[in-house]
């Protein structure tokens, strides 16, 4: 099983689920017989509310897939989303919740009468077999790495009939990433960055994690890059040995300065990053942890942090990363 990004999600609660899926509370008992008759009648011919050409009814099983579908203008094709999907807020609010990130709930999913289920990482492969058994086509959209985003958009564009919009968005993201790559190649000075995903246990990212790719592109050097695991626990001793130049907190701090947290823990005060107060938080966690259409915003966030840090730590150093 592939680890899910720890910082990705602000879960919407199940109670936000579309009321249409809920049963009408306290239906009078005398209605039961006519209702049963109606149901029986319904078995004979196709349900009346479903038009002949129902079109696409997609179920998204990941917040970044939802973002991708909305970004290419195919919001109306979405019939179900995860409880983590929160962007774009006004567009996803009314979509029924049919599962968690990578964990579809079968009953609400079936109730949404899907034509396709979009999937990038499923928590349990068994789900896939269940959906196959139910004859619901599952579309695998590879979208966990930076380089996969443009093609994922194109694939969704073809599926939803929004190929032109998808192509435009994909190529603008591609050129944005290429520009960052070119800028990155000219960079001489790369600060060594520790990515930290929780305030209470040191979890960091290996080189393949999405945010680690983003950090490398923004001009930082991830100290956890030797590991191939996406996210893993490390010891404070290892962090001390690495002695990163700066620490990037990828978790909700609720406005509190993480420095005060680290300053009071054994060992952390010896870190250069803590002593020189080079500890930063990422303002919008979702853009840096979701491989979706807002990837360039996430990249800009990380670059802004690194640029501000370089200015602060060495105002006269010409080798510092320069802002575009």
């Amino acid at each position: 099983m592939r680890a899910q990004p720890p910082a990705t999600v602000d879960h919407a609660r199940r109670k936000n689920r579309d009321p249409r899926n809920g049963r009408a509370p306290g239906a009078p008992r005398r209605l039961l017989v006519p209702l049963a008759l109606l149901l029986l009648a319904g078995c004979a011919r196709p349900p009346a509310e479903q038009p002949a050409d129902a079109g696409l009814r997609l179920i998204s099983t990941a917040p970044h897939l939802t973002e991708c579908v909305c970004a290419i203008g195919a919001r109306d094709a979405l019939a179900g989303r995860t409880e983590s999907c929160d962007y774009p807020p006004e567009a996803v609010r009314d979509i029924p919740v049919t599962g968690g990130f990578g964990t579809p709930w079968l009953e609400p999913l079936l109730a949404a009468r899907p034509t396709h289920v979009l999937e990038t990482v499923l928590a349990d492969p068994e789900i896939r077999r269940r959906l196959d058994a139910l004859k619901i086509p599952v579309v695998h959209v590879p979208c966990t790495r930076l380089a996969e985003i443009p093609d994922a958009l194109r694939q969704l564009g073809t599926l939803t009939g929004h190929a032109a919009q998808a192509e435009a968005l994909a190529s603008s993201i591609r050129s944005g990433l290429d520009a960052a790559q070119a800028e990155n190649a000219r960079r001489a000075n790369r600060p060594r960055v520790l990515l930290l995903f929780a305030p209470d246990t040191p979890i960091t990212a290996g080189r393949h994690a999405f945010i680690a790719e983003l950090l490398a592109l923004a001009g930082g050097m991830n100290v956890g890059r030797d590991a191939s695991a996406d996210y893993y626990h490390v010891s404070v001793e290892w962090i001390l040995e690495q002695n990163p130049d700066l620490i990037l907190c990828v978790f909700e701090t609720s406005g509190h300065d993480p420095l005060t947290l680290f300053g009071s823990q054994t060992g952390w005060n010896a870190l250069d990053a803590v002593r020189h107060r080079r500890v930063y938080t990422v303002p919008d966690l979702n853009t840096v942890s979701r491989p979706g259409p807002r990837v360039l915003e996430g990249l800009a966030q990380l670059r802004d942090i690194l640029v501000a840090d370089a200015r602060r730590s060495s105002p006269s150093d010409p080798a510092a990363p320069v802002s575009k």
Binding site: Q4, P5, P6, A7, T8, V9, D10, H11, R13, F101, F197, A198, D200, T201, I203, Y231, H233, S235, V236, F251, E252, S264, Q265, T266
Partner: peptide, 24 residues
Amino acid sequence: SFAQTRAVHSITWWLLGNLQATSW
């Protein structure tokens, strides 16, 4: 079942037990 993914990771790790105490 209701916690955020991040919190689930931290809680699970805590449940497994770890001897790195945070302060003297």
